[in-house]
Design a protein around this nucleic acid. Structure first.
Lengths: 194, 194, 194, 194
DNA sequence: GATGAATGAGGGTTCATTCAT
DNA sequence: TATGAATGAACCCTCATTCAT
């Protein structure tokens, strides 16, 4: 107990350290050697738990990204009303809380991730999310508003250091801005004014 | 002419190919060998023109990023009015047109770039831009609106594939959304309603 | 057995080959590729056993130089009499026998070694040896005699090819010359004649 | 004049800088780029004056080593008396004064120099010097004394930092030790005592 | 469940050298 | 007298991966 070697949880520990390092230094810059050293294990040990380096990322994505998948699944069963969309944003913001390190990693390593197998999966997920928010019939401006609403939620991960304030408050503010944007998109669409 | 060896423009050609490949595959995944092969020169030739791989990125940043620096310089001499800020957004959107490949590269390789010498420079630039748009006295919500306005302009580089439509139109729409956000930020601040 | 892959002794074998090549061709001229080829392993294998090229030298120095360190340690515990000093020379000469390839390497690559981390260590060791032999209060001439005594032992590695004769005999002769020098240094110092 | 580009003496300046750097860092560690930069010329300029890097060393050796060659030539015409040999040592010590940087370079880069074309030349010169000092018929011990006398003069370049004192005084002391050694070698030889 | 030892491929970088101008 | 531009070879080193134990 304490700092003695835990057994059985090595896989989990690898994921933790890997995500931490991937997020901090990037995927390419983080070598398996480094991960192994942080864990005080051998590189070869990693290969007992994961087939490849890419496999680690994949596992992270599957484990930590589940909430988002569930959110999408939920969204697809709801009626396409404004209220649903607003709720989607609320839940998305919520989901980002726990998935933030993963999402930050995906954001900051887009170029790399794109070449990995998860690249496609991630892209599909984002398309699915967009599709739930978006009305392809709506005026372009409103579509842009919707997409902006969605992605402004991501902004909190890299663009909000500029502003002082309690992180929780900032999160709430970002969400409010996003909700407003979406509401605007809907309102103007309904009244037909571009 | 044509594919015969041009003289004198090698440095430029290196920059072009490098940016293209960096943007397409990421910085780490792009080897100097690859760049050299695209140019039909030796790796060593690259080193005649640039001290290191990182130096290539730096040069790109300095050469292609100048319009943004000039914009910031301009902004710092203007009065801090709403109109100035709106004009900043307009010009920023304009500047992004030519700097887009570079900016896309910076966005998609954040984790890598952060470790490079330009990391700091880029960060400073973004802070400077933010500072021009932001009123640190304003309510949090309005500050968030302002930052979102700024960064939503970036969104066009990665988040707008979801939407169909003419790229020029989309750009205009994004700009309009950004201008609206900034105007809202200002309006509510003035009337004191958070 | 024979030329079949031995296991467990690779580290040792690397050291052997490395010292051999370093001594024969110099440190800089000896590439890791060359060492690896002599051992019929990959360059990368070397890096499993040693962190850097420099590290190989360091290990050689630590492993093979130990007798000299022990000699110094011994010397530092003895009374500073002439007899101690003479015994030091005798033991030093003895120690040089096994450490000769290493010492030759150090001698012949001084310029290089000086830039390496062992440079300092080596220098310190030589200073320590000198300090044991030397009496800083003695007349300059006697100090020079003492230092010459010490370093003349080294001369056998590079200056004695000129003379014909059995290596063992030459070694003994060199030692006798050194002992004489030191005795002179002491004698004249005691009688006060410079 | 002053620090403006001198013309005509570039060859000389290359030699100066090269020797300085070779002596300070070693032959292999000193690149032509570095030499060129110190001179504020291009690498290619060096090739106008010298055919290869090795050629620079060769020229240094020929230009700065002449006094030693002349000394040997002088020695070969003298009778093989003790007095001649003592005078040889005196003149050798003198000659070392101006040739010291070169000699230090040769000493500290033996491993490298041995592979260069001057390696042979240098070796021959040392053999020639030895031959003038040595009596191959003498007892081994006396031969060793003679060689030690000669090489102890070199010791001042690397082994005398240990001792405090005015460099000139140390030089004189070293010479005296060498002369003593040679005289001893002769005396004992004459009296037949080994 | 993990290690020790090794590999093959490739990385960025530096070097001495060349040659047209 | 020199330079600008380039080359080919080699360098040290790191990586993800494998496999027998």
């Amino acid at each position: 107990m304490g700092s003695t070697p835990r057994r059985g949880d090595t896989r989990q520990r690898i994921q933790d350290v890997a995500l931490e390092l991937f997020a901090a230094q990037g995927y390419e810059k983080t070598s398996l050697r480094e991960i192994a050293e942080h864990l005080e294990v051998t590189k070869a040990a990693l290969y007992y738990h994961f087939k490849t380096k890419e496999d680690i990322v994949l596992s992270l994505f599957q484990d930590l990204g589940r909430p988002l998948d569930e959110l999408i699944a939920w969204g697809e069963e709801q009626p396409r009303t404004l209220e649903t969309k607003l709720e989607l944003l609320r839940r998305y913001s919520e989901a980002l809380n726990s998935a933030e390190p993963l999402m930050r990693f995906m954001q900051e390593n887009q170029a790399t991730v794109r070449e990995l197998s998860i690249g496609q999966i991630f892209k599909k997920r984002m398309f699915a999310m967009s599709a739930l928010i978006l009305d392809p019939e709506a005026p372009l401006l409103d579509q842009v508003r919707s997409v902006t609403a969605l992605f402004s939620l991501h902004a909190r991960m890299f663009a909000l250091h500029t502003i002082e304030g309690d992180p929780g408050d900032k999160r709430d503010a970002v969400l409010k801005v996003a909700l407003d944007l979406l509401t605007q998109a809907h309102a103007s669409a309904e009244h037909g004014d571009a």
